[in-house]
Design a protein around this nucleic acid. Sequence first.
DNA 1: GTGGTCTAGACCACA
DNA 2: GTGGTCTAGACCACG
Lengths: 123, 123, 123, 123
Amino acid sequence: MDFTADKPIYLQIADYVCERILLHHWLQAEKIPSVRELAVSLSVNPNTVQRSYAWLEEMNVIIMQRGVGYFVSKHGLARVFQLKKQAFLEDDLPKLFYQMDLLGINIKELNQFYKVRGEHEKK
Amino acid sequence: MDFTADKPIYLQIADYVCERILLHHWLQAEKIPSVRELAVSLSVNPNTVQRSYAWLEEMNVIIMQRGVGYFVSKHGLARVFQLKKQAFLEDDLPKLFYQMDLLGINIKELNQFYKVRGEHEKK
Amino acid sequence: MDFTADKPIYLQIADYVCERILLHHWLQAEKIPSVRELAVSLSVNPNTVQRSYAWLEEMNVIIMQRGVGYFVSKHGLARVFQLKKQAFLEDDLPKLFYQMDLLGINIKELNQFYKVRGEHEKK
Amino acid sequence: MDFTADKPIYLQIADYVCERILLHHWLQAEKIPSVRELAVSLSVNPNTVQRSYAWLEEMNVIIMQRGVGYFVSKHGLARVFQLKKQAFLEDDLPKLFYQMDLLGINIKELNQFYKVRGEHEKK
DNA sequence: GTGGTCTAGACCACA
DNA sequence: GTGGTCTAGACCACG
């Protein structure tokens, strides 16, 4: 991972964790890397990972067990799915459609872009 | 307008200007509000508007005539269109499609959302 | 202020801010000290104050205006009152009564303690 | 028992032991569960129970007999009572009354809450 | 000037 | 070993 995006690193790490969960790489109730481990593997300061984990815990995605570590929460997957879907429907989609209106792009063209993207992926 | 979004205010104002142009509210070579006027009407610090205008001038969307004011540039509309379309295709769409993959939303559903949105708009 | 309690300093600072608001020392929509100012006046690291403010903003007690500072939010006083009262009723009171049961202290004695406290205050 | 409270688990366990004693569930000079037993029954690390017992022994609430186990000390009940009452009077009550002042709750309302609680208990 | 983020490094309590 | 907090100091974007 490189943290080039303008988004704060700690949020990018949070997204990374959510992605792991969504992709079933980290299962429910499974232990996730310790703050220090992840900090090393991402070559980031432990404080930054700490912040990500604290944020995710507040979002009820992960939970902390004292002296043991962080775990994907019981309904972690569902929670992530809910959060991401909500953001998608309420934030991303309206913006997308609004942009399309402004640029005069109709739904047909959008389908075309999607199809083209799919073909790129195959390669 | 309220500037609650996490995007910098000066960019939100720039977007606002671009929108005016795209919607043909501000025509080519037309004078746009002075920094102070816009600052007052948006209840924002003039420095902020100044920065927006500077950014738009750098992007060749508007041009300054000393002692007169800012004007939509000769190819302002085309320029805005190009900028927005490029950002849309290179930034927004890939992110959108990636999100859709993660959430298991396919193109059919997207069409559905678009259709529903269209019906809401009519009301 | 001395931060002797076992509670984290940043939460003690948050409590301090809430107290100011409850006592009407800081009014609604009023600007509160900048992160750096408060850090100096409490002789604490700015990061710590920052954390307190971030926490209070999440609780909708204060709001941030970019480049300007933090302000007591519109319904800041009501919000603080609500938060504190809820904590009092749902957390503190049940614990209190449970302790009283265990120690065999009845309500009459409690009234007595309250009365005695009141007389101490007068001095 | 779940150890979600922010208080250290070993103190929560100590509280649990004190409660047993106060409620006369565990009598004076009676043997209390071994470290391992209690650890299993609370599904907690034995080290944690060990720390609780050490703390209670230091407080003269329980005593260890090498090779035999832990016992409620001779004046265990009185000791617990004293400790809890002192904490109640010196720590809990002042904080409570201070909160009441801040929230504008007077002693009459407190009596009301107590009465209501009592009625709930009856059901 | 404002807040926001990040690093480095330290110390502590806890399990 | 775990996480939690705090400091010191730095840099940045923003208004």
